[in-house]
């Protein structure tokens, strides 16, 4: 009896594996599960067994039949699924319903990138008004009236006391007047220059300035910080130099150049930012003891950074807001 059960099951499994369409599935059902099917016949044989063997085979038969039925149902389901797929047609290659993720203006993205680097170094971010007083924009920053240094920036004056800020430095002045050191902050924002509009210059642009004032701030720290920044932005192998320069509000003052190597063209030094130690006059002007505290400041033009990074040759593109331009970033 036991052998017979085994034979039937192994035959069933073989037949099962051969089933690949509804017809052969139906044949299988009739062969094993119909009233005269092979499995049903086993139960007929069972009836004829001696009484003492019945408990042993009864259980075995029931389990065997149940397992076989489960296998059959599973196969039936699989077969049905396959058939479904074969029957319907879906063009999976159609384009999806259009959805758009817009984008921040490339200038905002650049500000965000630069700010993130400095925020990571413990800088706060402050902003201020664009329409400023001459005092905040020039005088407190050590630009005396009637000084040639004022020629460095063509200014949009409102009158002799007010103007459109030429740099974000007045935010530094406001901050220093309001807060006690330590102060470590960057100031992004729009600045204005009364210049003719061309591919190279626009009447406004964006700046990010930085300021750090504490009891032990040195040029060596400024240098370390800006080198870290330049490497973050232009790669760890960036070649740079610090070049002596002049800004009324810092002393010593320097400009930072990086070596720019366009493909297939001659390389050259390109200025990326200005920096220096905050001039003691500026600290005194805002009531910070310049003997006790030292500080550094730096500033950079955001458009310039973006022009460089993306190889854009005309600054006006930033302010034309052509959709075809906006969509590229």
């Amino acid at each position: 009896m036991e052998q017979k059960i085994k034979d039937i099951i192994s035959a069933f499994e073989k037949d099962l594996s051969d089933v690949d369409n509804p017809q052969s599935l139906e044949d299988l059902r009739i062969k094993y599960f119909s009233r005269n099917g092979l499995l049903s016949n086993l139960f007929e044989d069972f009836k004829n067994l001696p009484k003492e063997e019945k408990p042993k085979y009864g259980q075995l038969l029931n389990i065997t039949k149940k397992e076989a039925q489960e296998k059959f149902e599973q196969l039936k389901k699989n077969l049905a699924n396959n058939l479904d797929t074969q029957k319907r047609f879906v063009d999976l290659s159609l384009p999806g319903r259009e959805q758009t993720i817009g984008s921040e203006h490339i200038i905002s993205q650049t500000i965000d990138n630069i700010s993130s680097i400095f925020k990571g170094l413990g800088f706060s971010v402050y902003v201020g008004p664009e329409l400023e007083s001459d005092e905040n924009n020039f005088e407190s920053l050590n630009f005396p009236p009637d000084h040639p240094a004022r020629d460095m920036q063509d200014t949009f004056f409102i009158n002799d006391k007010f103007l459109l800020r030429t740099h974000t430095s007045p935010v530094q002045i406001r901050l220093m007047k309001e807060k006690k050191p330590p102060i470590r902050a960057i100031m992004p924002g729009k600045v204005y220059r009364n210049e003719a509009i061309s591919a190279k210059s626009y009447c406004l642009f964006h700046q990010i300035e930085g300021l750090y004032i504490d009891t032990d701030v040195t040029f060596a720290e400024l240098k370390g910080t800006l080198v870290y920044f330049a490497k973050k932005l232009y790669g760890q192998n960036v070649k740079y130099r610090f070049r002596s320069s002049f800004f009324p509000f810092t002393e010593p003052s320097a400009e930072v150049d990086i070596w720019w190597q366009p493909k297939g063209k001659e390389g050259r030094w390109l200025e990326i930012l200005g920096c220096g130690m905050v001039d003691p006059n500026v600290l005194d002007n805002v009531g910070i003891d310049s003997e006790k505290y030292t500080g550094y400041a730096f500033g950079m033009g955001v458009e310039r950074m973006a022009l460089l990074k993306y190889g854009i040759s005309d600054i006006r593109l930033f302010f034309d807001n052509d959709y075809r331009f906006l969509q590229q970033f």
Binding site: S124, V125, Y126, R184, P188, A220
Partner: peptide, 23 residues
């Protein structure tokens, strides 16, 4: 020459309140 001034390799950060007005 500024090239002679060493760039520091670490900085310390004061733990005053950090603010982001552009957030």
């Amino acid at each position: 020459g500024f090239a002679r001034i060493p760039a520091v390799e670490k900085i310390s950060v004061a733990l005053e309140e950090k603010i982001d007005q552009t957030k």
